[in-house]
Amino acid sequence: MGHLSLSAVSKIYDDHGAPVTALSGITLDIADGEFCAILGHSGCGKTSLLNMVAGFESPTSGSITVDRQAVTGPGWERTIIFQDYALFPWANIRDNVAFGLEMKGVPPAERRRIVDHHLSLVGLAAFAERYPHQLSGGMKQRVAIARALAVQPRVLLMDEPFAALDDQTRRAMQGELTRIWQQEKKTVVLVTHSIDEAILLADTVVVLSRHPGRIKRIVPIGLDRPRDEDDPAYAVLRKELRALIHDEADPI
């Protein structure tokens, strides 16, 4: 369960009376268990797209459905992970991960079992009683992943989740995410501006153009996981995506 479908979605913002088209004619099907990366420069509307799937914003026209149910607002079927982690600083790690389960009305004993399972999944079982400010950036993002997965969402949304991390931690987290995703088989929509991140993680890469944001091309990534940057096929994909993205860059 977790088939995400966008049909002719467009988003027009009002900029002091002047309409600005952020996204236009986005039609996209993401299968259950598929890992989809949305790739584009800043200003291509990729975050707007994610916000609409999350239900924080509504499309100006078109429709978004998850398992044929229309998205009308935020809800546990579509949990989100932000770049800045957005952990509750007053709650310990256990209570952070338990938050969604509590909102769902899961009884305490069951809640505890699910939280323990997800803390082990992200390798933080020993840190349950710590507070967010006592953890490193990579560990905070693991907590955010555990919190988002604990409610068993149909779709996991990620908004540039590793952009705030240093290079080494980012690579480790990308490996971790691949492992977790292979274990949990969730539908994932990941927004990124990094070509490498898209190739390393995704089954399909949706390249967006700018002004307005449209789907430029959908590139399937057929490589085996874990992916190897030295693989010649990887280099071919990187070249292809770079060319697609390069066209969209601002003239300097």
Binding site: P74, W76, T79, F99, G100, R147
Partner: peptide
């Protein structure tokens, strides 16, 4: 209040009242 904290809580299924009280 950090907008993403509110959004994270909403996406985890918190009602408006719960968001107010818990976040």
């Amino acid at each position: 209040v950090d907008r993403n904290l509110i959004r994270a809580a909403r996406s985890l299924g918190a009602s408006e009242w719960k968001v107010l009280r818990r976040v």
